[in-house]
């Protein structure tokens, strides 16, 4: 499963209460549309770091990095690439 599908699946199951609504699209604005709130960010960060074995540092904890599934996926892409290079 691609990063973005794994992320979407977590958002639907854990942040949207189990998928009663339509799953968000890659470009949907998660924060602006209220899909992710401040609690949701905490849960999402823990999930991303554990699932992809990455560490998201303070500099990267920016709302724009969590704006959409696309941007979250790009962040994970960058982090996993860095880990591979290291």
């Amino acid at each position: 499963m691609a990063f973005r599908d794994v992320i979407r699946s977590f958002i639907v199951s854990d942040l949207m209460g189990g998928g009663a609504g339509e799953p968000p699209k890659d470009s949907d604005l998660l924060i602006e549309e209220g899909i992710i709130d401040s609690f949701g960010i905490m849960a999402l960060l823990g999930f991303l770091e554990e699932k992809f074995a990455i560490h998201i540092s303070g500099d990267e904890l920016l709302p724009e990095n969590f704006a959409s599934i696309e941007s979250i996926s790009s962040l994970v892409d960058r982090k996993t690439e860095l880990r591979t290079e290291a």
């Binding site: 960010i41 303070g58 904890l61």
Partner: peptide, 13 residues
Amino acid sequence: LGREGQGAIIFNE
């Protein structure tokens, strides 16, 4: 402190 708009994330941390 941090970037503009980063307050809620700093709060959670």
